[in-house]
């Protein structure tokens, strides 16, 4: 597959996954705010921490409140990570690779883009129908995944897409857990309080993991949440699961079934996969959850750079 095309498909999928995660985070926080115990302040700043957009935000606004955060994360065209920007980037990438994806995939990305541009959405949505918008984005993206799975041949386009999707998802899950653990860390008397529980439940809901957690463990505790979202073998948004799936696609695009001559990206991903495979929750806690997640984010960044160097850049070919 053309390197430029692989690059575009990879990023199209990352952007789409990013948009979905943003929509989930905002949607859940919005609902959470409705359940806040009296006297507790709504917390919107952590959303900016999860997405690492806080520095951008501060350049634009002095104070943090719901309207500003939602507008900034959903519609702001100056914010390169806003849902709007992500969908626009994804569509732009899709336009350059239409011959490599199915017509239905293109039309779905295009319809998401047209949805964003509908006058009933856009800035100032808070006074209208905020929830509807986020639900439509999420379901539109889920449709995209379904369409992709049922229309695209399992060749390079599929695998580079999966690399983008799962690396982005692993990164966002790690940031989500980190924020609750690191920033929303409750004071001693709040542990186990309604607020604490509410936050853990919200976190699970934002990645569709609430009932999975209940079913698996019976009740919700921080350690269970961490185990589920970092190490679970079967849950499709756990970090382990994402890296495992990404690694499968990595091996397909590298074509190293004989197990020889690995490229850097494959090596890095293989070692990350193995590391996650042989870790357990006690190990993570012993290392420090924040430190552990931090390392995961660094690993993902390095892998992304290595994918660029190994597949997209052709730095070894003198043009």
């Amino acid at each position: 597959m053309l390197s430029r095309v692989a690059d575009s498909i990879y990023w199209m999928n990352r952007y789409i996954e990013r948009a979905e995660n943003y929509a989930r985070f905002i949607n859940v926080n919005f609902t959470l705010a409705l359940d806040m115990p009296m006297g507790k302040e709504e917390q919107w700043e952590p959303l900016l921490e999860i997405t690492e957009d806080i520095l951008y935000f501060r350049k634009k606004y002095d104070t943090v409140d719901k309207e500003k955060v939602i507008d900034f994360l959903a519609f702001d065209t100056d914010n390169p990570n806003s849902i709007y920007s992500c969908i626009a980037h994804a569509r732009e990438n899709a336009r350059t690779v239409r011959e490599n994806i199915s017509t239905e995939m293109w039309e779905q990305v295009n319809s998401l883009y047209l949805l964003m541009r509908e006058p009933k959405f856009g800035s100032g949505i808070m006074t209208r129908e905020p929830m509807l918008f986020f639900r439509e984005v999420i379901s539109g993206i889920q449709s995209f995944r379904g369409i992709t799975a049922s229309t695209i041949s399992r060749s390079d386009a599929w695998h580079f897409g999966r690399l983008g999707l799962f690396l982005e998802r692993a990164d966002k899950t790690s940031r989500l857990v980190d924020v609750k653990y690191h920033i929303l860390l409750p004071s001693a008397e709040d542990v186990g309080s309604t607020l604490d529980l509410l936050q853990w439940a919200a976190l699970l809901k934002s990645v569709s993991a609430y009932s999975v957690c209940r079913r698996k463990y019976g009740y919700i505790s921080p350690n269970h949440v961490i185990e589920l979202l970092i190490l679970d073998r079967r849950f499709p948004r756990s970090i382990y699961f994402c890296i495992k799936e990404a690694f499968l696609s990595m091996r397909e695009v590298s074509g190293n079934s004989d197990g020889n001559s690995y490229n850097i990206a494959e090596k890095l991903m293989g070692s990350m996969h193995t590391q996650l495979e042989y870790t357990d929750i006690q190990g993570v806690i012993k290392d420090g959850v924040h430190e552990y997640l931090d390392r995961i984010q660094v690993d993902i960044m390095n892998i992304s750079d290595a994918i660029f160097a190994s597949f997209f850049a052709h730095s070894n070919i003198d043009k």
Binding site: L2, R4, A6, R98, E99, T103, F160
Partner: peptide, 28 residues
């Protein structure tokens, strides 16, 4: 549209190189 319908690659100048008077695409 045409590339898609004919099942051929859509390339830009930067996707092509010439070596020994032959043209190549840069692939993964």
């Amino acid at each position: 549209y045409l590339a898609r319908d004919m099942g051929i690659e859509l390339v830009e100048g930067r996707d092509l190189v010439v070596r020994d008077d032959c043209v190549y695409t840069l692939t993964t």
